[in-house]
């Protein structure tokens, strides 16, 4: 099987959609000649030209909003918001417009728009270039939310997001762009709303997203040395959520840890914990542990940044706490 980096996998899905479908176009800040601030869209301008690979002004409201308008007219726009921190600028268009047109119109309108964005700590960008805001969007009926953690998932999920008739926010993680992974020869779409079990285990379930999937797999290896068998599940799509796979896993292991890079308070782990305790209360042998970042704007100095966000050690400690409950 061929290998692609996470970055190449995203690009592969974009290129294939642009190649096969005239209704697809991409727009965002610096995505054309520069190829995007994360180099994801490199080469696409040369292949598809400036009409379909469009640099935009620094206008996040208009980028998302014009994507909405084009989508309603039958296009499948893919817009890039350079950092998810900047999604906050386009919130009105995403939350009040994209998410609500279909309901407000009584089903007359669909908005097949994909919003790609990225974020994440680990390179000292400071507080405004590294947030993990995915939980905000899970709170909005009408949106779908995807967070891919591997090259194969990124490619297959992005394809499904593009061809979903609902507005979908697609999160990529800054520190994952260079990881390599095996992918199938041909792009295999991955349906939205299907979790992936990365590693089977029998003692503790870790439900992790984004970078923390990799940290959790590392923690699981460590735990194994102590005789603790850990199952790692990545929901991949946060909205809609594959509750069945997650709940079944917890019923099997009776213990659960949630893990994401976003701050713990009000994070996606809180929603996971609520869903799991309600569906599997009688199966649980320990309180659900949540792993996430400290509740502070991310500090710049590398020591403070690394202290604030979770790593494999934090997941391992949480695993041990759940096991210690007997």
């Amino acid at each position: 099987m061929p290998e692609l980096t996470y970055r190449e996998a995203v690009r592969d899905a974009l290129g294939k959609a642009l190649r096969e479908d005239d209704s697809v176009f991409i727009m965002g800040e610096d995505i054309a000649e520069m190829g995007g601030s994360m180099a994801v869209t490199q080469g696409l301008l040369d292949e598809f030209g400036p009409t379909r690979v469009r640099n935009t002004p620094i206008s996040e409201m208009a980028i998302v909003g014009s994507g909405i308008g084009a989508a309603i007219q039958g296009m499948r726009p893919i817009v890039e918001i350079m950092y998810e921190d900047f999604l906050t600028i386009s919130m009105e268009q995403l939350v009040n417009q994209a998410a609500k047109h279909r309901t407000m119109s009584g089903g007359q309108i669909s908005v097949p728009l994909t919003i790609r964005t990225q974020g994440g700590a680990g390179w000292s960008p400071g507080a405004q270039h590294a947030q993990q805001l995915e939980a905000w969007f899970v709170h909005v009926p009408g949106l779908k939310v995807v967070f891919a953690s591997t090259p194969e998932d990124a490619r297959g999920l992005l394809w499904s997001a593009i061809y979903d008739d609902n507005p979908t926010v697609f999160f990529e993680h800054r520190t994952l762009y260079s990881i390599k992974g095996e992918v199938s020869d041909e792009l295999q779409p991955i349906p939205l709303g299907k979790a992936r079990i990365h590693r089977e285990g029998s003692d503790v379930t870790v439900v992790a997203t984004g970078r923390l999937v990799h940290e959790s797999l590392q923690a699981a290896e460590e735990a194994e040395k102590d005789g603790i068998s850990v199952e790692v599940v990545d929901p991949r799509t946060l909205l809609p959520l594959d509750e069945q796979t997650i709940v079944e896993s917890v019923k099997k292991t009776a213990r659960c840890v949630t893990a994401h890079e976003a701050v713990t308070r009000g994070g996606f782990g809180a929603e996971l914990a609520a869903v799991i305790q309600h569906a599997a209360f009688d199966w649980l042998d320990a309180p659900i542990e949540r792993v996430g970042a400290a509740f502070a704007p991310l500090a710049f100095a590398p020591g403070m940044e690394q202290w604030a966000v979770p790593h494999a050690d934090d997941v391992l400690e949480a695993i041990r706490r759940t096991v210690a409950r007997g």
Binding site: M61, A62, V64, G65, S66, G67, I68, G69, A70, A71, I72, Q73, G74, M75, P77, E92, Q93, N96, Q97, H101, M104, S105, G106, Q108, I109
Partner: peptide, 28 residues
Amino acid sequence: YDVEVGNLGANAVVGGGLPGIVGAALAF
């Protein structure tokens, strides 16, 4: 809303409908 006659919707957010019109015009 009345999409059949080209009404893409009234908007309760002041200024909220403008970016979408740019996108519709772009599609045309």
